[in-house]
Design a protein around this nucleic acid. Sequence first.
DNA 1: ATGGTAGCGCTGCTA
Length: 258
Amino acid sequence: MRIATWNVNSLKARLARVEEWLGYAQPDVLCLQETKLADSAFPAMAFQALGYDSAHHGEGRWNGVAILSRVGLEDVVAGFTDQSEDETTEARLLWATCDGVRIGTVYVPNGRMVGSEHYDAKLAWLDRLRNHVTTQCDATGNLVLCGDWNVAPEDRDVFDVKKLHGATHVSPPEREALAAITGWGMEDVFRRIYDDEKLYSWWDYRAGDFHEGRGLRIDLVLATKPMAERATWALIDRNARKGKLPSDHAPLLVDFDV
DNA sequence: ATGGTAGCGCTGCTA
């Protein structure tokens, strides 16, 4: 099973690129983030025409997550299950079961500046996700949780450690919040395949950062042990970050022997 | 050298 994750930074702006990419990347499951669409505007028919069932959880202008699958799509759950009736939350989490694998797509809040209310909200969101996963999910089962985590797990995932020291995406509390999730029983699968530095998944649009190699690895596929052990191949598809009007993120693909 | 781009949507916010 090939599972991919891609922050597309507006599915409306990126639909043609996503369709083209599905054609040559051939994922069985694709998790999307930042669709920036309301559910009513989600182009389900375009994906159905390519053989993919889909589920979308969106709010319109910002955020929005989706799962596309050509191997079945069942038991779709949007958001946190502890959500109260009147709680309004941003569309950042969606689950589905695809061919026996429980798959989640996440778009973790950016956090903006360390110490800001947005940063505190990011840490709180990650802790809520940890609570959700550790109480609702089975670490011995087939679980894959992928998306834009807005956290670079280690210094080797950052283009300039000194420049970004203590900043958002690399601060110790963010890394600890992510580690609390992996520590429960999931692995950053990409690192099972590659040890290298300078393998990034996001580059700022500004100042030629992509072409200068100034990026971060913040898009991650986490998998429980039984799944991670069956990972056979992974790739950050930098070609999808090139050309006219790309997303600022590249897609990440992982093959599992299931 | 403290810049720069993209998306949404029409003003400035978000990333």
